[in-house]
Structures are given as C-alpha cells and as structure tokens.
Amino acid sequence: MSALYSLLAVLALVAAGLEGGRTGAGRDALTLIVPYAAFTIFLAGFCVRVLRWAWAPVPFHIPTTCGQQKSLPWIRQAKVDNPSSKWGVLARMAAEILLFRSLFRNNRARMAEKRLILGESKFLWLGALAFHWALLLILLRHLRLFIQPVPAWVNGLERLDGFLQIGAPQLYISDVILLAALAYLLYRRFRDPAVRYISLFTDYFALFLLLAIAVSGVLMRYFVRVDVLSVKQFALSLAAFRPVDLRALSPLFLAHLLLVCTLAAYLPFSKLMHMGGIFLSPTRNLANDSRRKRHINPWNYPVKKHTYAEWEEEFHDKLVAAGIPLEDEDAGKAHTD
C-alpha cells in the first residue's frame, strides 16, 4: 500500500512538472519560487538537523569494536576495525563512508553444502555502493551547468565517465549504474519479505523520487534532447541570483527540476539525512581507548549510593562474627565487648 501511495505521489510530481509550465504563473513558480524555496529549506533543514545531533552530547564512550583491542604490545591489534588512535578512527570512518565497510562485512563468500554462497547481502553492498558513487559522479558532472568556465576536473570526470565511447551523445557509465542500482534496490525492497515487512512510505518514496529524477535526466540527455545551452543559461542565472525565465526550457526539464527540488526540500525531513548522520555515529567515530583516557560526560550527576559506612552499619554484627576487618577497628571492638 505505502509503495503504491509513494508511486502516486511521485507521478503527481512528474505531472505537475510537465504541465506546470503551460501557464505563466506556473512557470514562475517552477523556475523561480520552487528552486529557491527548496534550496533554502534544504540548507536550513540540513543545518538544523546536523546541529541538533551535534548539540546532543555523547555521554558515554560506546564504540562497537570489530577486532582485537590494543592491549599488550605483542598482540596484534586490528587498527582499523578497533581503532585506538585518531588515525585509526579516520581510517575506519573512511572505510565506512567510502567503501561501506560494515555492509561488506556481511558478505564473506563461503563454501557451504559444497557450493559457494554469494548471498543477497553481497548484492546489497554492491548495489548501495554503486548507487552512491554513481550519484556523486552525476552530481559533480552537473557542476558544468553552474560554473562558467567549466573547471578542468569536471571535464576530466566527464571523459572518465564516458570512456566507453558508445553512442552520440556519449553514454555515461554513471547513468547506467545509477539506474541499475536503483532498480535493484527497489526490486530488493519488494522481493525480500523481511525488508518489505519493515518498509515505510518514505522508503519507497525516496526510491521512486530518485528513480524519476534519473529517468527524466536520462531521457533529456539521450532521447528527448533538450537545449543544453538554455538550461545552462538558466542554471547560471539561478546560481547568480538573477534568474531569467527562458521559453526554451522544455516541460521535461521543468519536471526534472521540480523533482530535484522536491528531493532537496524533502531530504532534511527524511531518512536521507543518513548522509550527514554517519559522520556523527558514536559507535563508529570514537577510538576504543576508554580505559586509557577518561571520557567526560557533560551532564554527569551525583546519584544516591549505598555507601560503605551505611553497609558496615547494617551488617556490623555479621562482619564482626565472620571476622571481616572493619573500617574502624576500635569501633568494632567497642561493639563486640
């Protein structure tokens, strides 16, 4: 049900984008108000969310250790999976963010029942990694629309991305990978009963939204060609805060724009915030050195304790009878005498 609702929601957005440009007011909304509003919401929302996390203290030192600790000098420590230094933490975080180390942990291919297990989980890691890297590449490629002259490294990225040199316009690998990965992640959400069981509207919505953005982008590049020059002119004018409305912008482009703006505005309110959250995760970004260095809890407060004195008073006679030394030997004697 939630899958259907989210699909409908995304289709409604697409329709709004395609049709919205027909009236003057609609065009104004789509090319002026929506982009700036979305950008503002994204920036403000993202900052608020990250700051809210950052302001919440980390009262206890709770890294999840995934390897041998640093203890005795002759025992080999797992310096990345159980880091004890800043560098180790940095390496662990890098592996986590760039390579999805923990997801990969799933996937030790093993022989069982005389056959190699390459489980579903391996594909999850691969699908997730492919999706995120392709998305990053595509985002960076889009910089060419916002910066004039186009930086050399962006051109370099494009050449790299198009190295297959198939077709005209040249096919970008990242486009293919992104679509394939998204399709897989969606397929998995439907097919795996456990994942389907826990999936919410927002899970499907994010996937459909990204898929719609990717599809509209691919359509514009390879099939329903848009006037790239006017798109760039429009993008530059947006970036310079002097937006111009160009008649040449096609409905498909407007739909793409609306979808992207929706994503940007939706992001701070959604699970997609994980991109910011991963950096702050206390089970990953702390060194396992809590016995070596004292971790400070800013709100540590005194608690009610059962002190030794109270304990000794309560059990005084039994302590004496059992011959367990008391704190004040003389006092003890006085009692027994």
Binding site: W53, A56, S102, L103, V195, S199, K271, I278
Partner: peptide
C-alpha cells in the same frame, strides 16, 4: 533522552531500513 544522548537521537533519525541487520 533525545537531548542527553546523541546516540538516541541519531539512531532514531538515520536508519534507512536496508535490512542488513535483519538476519
């Protein structure tokens, strides 16, 4: 507790329900 524990607030927010933990 959302104010006092970053872990709690963060873990409430960032799960994407990928299901890697399920089994």
């Amino acid at each position: 507790r959302l104010k006092k524990y970053r872990s709690f607030r963060l873990f409430m927010d960032i799960c994407v329900r990928c299901g890697a933990c399920a089994d």
